[in-house]
Simulated scan of single mutants.
Amino acid sequence: MTVPAVRKIIHVDMDAFYASVEQRDDPALRGKPVAVGYAAKRGVVAAASYEARTFGVRSAMPSTTAMRQCPDLIFVPPRFEVYKAVSRQIHAIFTDYTNLVEPLSLDEAYLDVTANRRGLATAGDTAREIRARILESTGLTASAGISYNKFLAKLASDQNKPNGQFVVAPGRGEAFAASLPVKRFYGVGPVTEARMTRLGIITGADLARQSLAFLQREFGKSGPWYHAIARGEDDRPVNPNRERKSSGSETTFSEDLTDPAAIETGVLAMADEVWAWCEKAAARGRTVTVKIKWADFQQSTRSRSFATPIDSAEAVRSASVELVRSVYPPMRGVRLVGVTLSNFSAAQVTGGVGPEQLSLT
Results as ranks from 00 to 15, higher is better:
Ile292Phe: 07
Ala262Asp: 14
Ser300Asp: 10
Val324Glu: 07
Asn160His: 14
Thr258Ser: 13
Val34Thr: 08
Arg184Lys: 15
Pro33Gln: 05
Glu108Gln: 13
Arg286Val: 05
Asp13Gly: 02
Thr114Ser: 05
Ala60Cys: 09
Ala175Thr: 03
Arg317Ala: 13
Val36Pro: 02
Ile263Glu: 08
Arg131Leu: 10
Thr350Pro: 01
Arg286Trp: 06
Gly248Leu: 09
Gly333Arg: 08
Thr54Ser: 15
Leu341Asp: 06
Leu152Glu: 03
Thr197Met: 10
Asn160Arg: 15
Thr138Ala: 06
Met331Trp: 09
Ile134Val: 15
Pro77His: 08
Ser211Ala: 11
Thr95Asn: 08
Ala28Ser: 12
Ser59Asp: 01
Leu135Pro: 10
Phe253Val: 07
Glu243Trp: 04
Ser147Gly: 12
Ala109Lys: 10
Tyr38Gln: 04
Ser300Leu: 08
Ser137Met: 12
Leu360Cys: 07
Phe17Leu: 08
Val76Phe: 01
Pro162Gln: 15
Gly338Ser: 13
Asp112Trp: 05
Glu322Lys: 09
Asp26Arg: 11
Thr203Ser: 09
Ser345Arg: 11
Arg335Leu: 04
Asp72Pro: 15
Val6Gly: 12
Ala115Phe: 14
Arg195Lys: 14
Tyr226Val: 02
Ser20Gly: 11
Tyr97Val: 05
Tyr186Asn: 12
Val267Glu: 00
Gly56Leu: 02
Met67Pro: 01
Gln348Tyr: 11
Ala281Tyr: 07
Ser345Asp: 15
Lys183Met: 02
Arg172Asp: 14
Lys161Trp: 11
Ala281Met: 08
Glu243Ile: 01
Arg184Cys: 13
Leu336Tyr: 00
Val76Cys: 01
Gln165Ala: 01
Leu29Asp: 03
Leu180Pro: 08
Pro33Met: 02
Thr141Arg: 11
Val168Tyr: 04
Ala16Val: 07
Asp296Ile: 12
Val36Trp: 04
Gly220Phe: 04
Asn99Met: 07
Ala48Lys: 06
Leu100Asn: 09
Lys293Thr: 14
Thr287Val: 01
Ala40Cys: 14
Val274His: 05
Phe214Pro: 01
Gly204Phe: 07
Pro78Met: 00
Val188Glu: 09
Ser49Trp: 02
Ala271Asp: 07
Leu111Cys: 02
Pro190Val: 12
His91Tyr: 15
Gly145Val: 10
Leu336His: 02
Asp72Ile: 15
Arg217Cys: 09
Gly200Glu: 06
Ala46Thr: 09
Phe219Tyr: 13
Phe297Asp: 12
Tyr226Gln: 05
Glu314Gln: 12
Arg30Gly: 09
Ala276Tyr: 05
Met61Gln: 07
Pro27Gly: 04
Glu102Asp: 03
Pro103Met: 04
Ala261Phe: 06
Leu341Trp: 07
